[in-house]
Computed example of a mutant assay.
Amino acid sequence: MTRQASALTTLALAALTTLGALPAAAQNSPGTSVTVYGLIDGCLASADLGSERLNAVSSGCLYGSRLGFRGTEDLGGGLQAAFTLESGITIDNGQLAQGGRMFGRKALVSLSGPWGTVEAGRDYAPAFYLVQPIDPMALGIGTASSSLWTGAASTTSARNDNAVNYLSPTWGGVSLRLQATAGEGGSGGARKSQGLNLLYRSGGTLAGLSYARVGDVADDQHDSAFTLGVKQELGRFSVAALAQSGAWEASRTVAAPASTSSVFSRKYRSWLVGGSVRTGSVGKLSLSIKRYDDRTVRNFDFTQVSVNYVHALSKRTDLYAGWSRLGNNSRTSYTVSDATGAYGPVQAGASTSLLAAGIKHVF
């Protein structure tokens, strides 16, 4: 075992021991609570890559598997302190996700009052909180994030380190979320970012907009995008739409405005339409159609169709199956993705597809 691995193991045991003792202490402190929660998702996946077929036992086709700890303390006078520590888990091999981070999904401490909530730590970018609840796939099989940027410095994580968030109270169904992150000198390639979303929720309506801006290491050039979205519940049915316009001027050069395999070019537009229907009392069928429009001269576009079905066995356990097909143009090799990863590499010009089925259990 390496020194780094030994230190990580020691830290993990210390954190779990401490957190395990918290509920007992909480019982003796009125207004304090600690919750242990999690989600386990395992699936079988088969991906057509154009030149070959990949079959895999995967972790998190519908949702990313996780183990979390959440706690609150009532401080009096309308104030409340809280924390969230959430680890991503890849259950097919028992490892930590998010590059091996102990709490890679979320690590936050917060203070709330009548004026709203201030948080600090690692969290999703504001655009995520607009895209995820509107996407009929819920960022699972055929995720909207394959064509709509969720606002983080990385296209794959949807999260930002070194973040400070402000969450407003809700006024007439309207809420505001602001986020700013520190580059912290850029010594490790950290990138400053800013983001916001403005959401409206009322009855079966969810509508909103978001803005994301991420600088390069020197903070001279910026990736940025505006996103609009709406979802409407209509009894057993729901309809949804998302649209995004962006430019990646911190991550793409004039000489290479886009990549054949990496979405988000120097200038792009993207949209999604879809919806869901409840089938009986325990089933839900969802469909989405996405279009990515590369606005550079290379014109690296794609169209994607996704469908999934979720069958509830209980309030905590679901069976699911899904299929997604992404049509590349003659030069591109974009990959189809699920909740935790992409399936590639894909042969240039090939249409790629993913068929997956699994079980999700929450606790």
Rank of each mutant, 00 (worst) to 15 (best):
Q4F: 12
Q4H: 15
L13F: 04
A14I: 12
A24H: 11
S29A: 10
P30V: 12
T32K: 06
V36K: 08
A47F: 10
D48K: 06
S51M: 04
R53Q: 13
V57F: 07
R66H: 08
R70C: 01
T72V: 07
A82D: 11
I89A: 14
G104L: 00
K106I: 00
P114K: 13
W115M: 09
G121D: 00
R122Q: 02
P133R: 03
A144K: 02
S145A: 10
S146R: 09
L148F: 14
W149P: 01
W149R: 02
W149S: 01
G151H: 07
T155D: 10
N162W: 08
Y166F: 10
L167I: 00
S168G: 07
T170L: 07
W171V: 06
G172T: 10
V174T: 14
V174F: 14
L178Y: 10
A180N: 10
A182W: 02
G183E: 13
A190N: 09
S193C: 07
L196W: 14
R201F: 15
R201I: 14
S202D: 14
G203L: 04
G204M: 04
L206Y: 07
L209T: 15
A212R: 03
D223E: 07
S224H: 15
L228T: 11
V230Q: 03
L234S: 09
L234N: 07
G235L: 06
A247E: 14
E249Y: 02
S251P: 13
T253R: 15
T253V: 15
V254S: 11
A255Q: 05
S262Q: 11
S262K: 05
Y268I: 03
R278P: 11
Y292F: 15
V297L: 10
D301S: 05
F302H: 03
L313C: 06
L313M: 12
T317G: 02
Y320W: 04
A321W: 01
W323A: 07
G327K: 13
S330P: 05
G341K: 08
G341T: 09
A342H: 03
A342F: 15
Y343V: 02
Y343L: 06
A348Y: 07
A348H: 05
G349E: 11
S351E: 03
S351L: 02
A356Y: 08
K360W: 01
K360T: 10
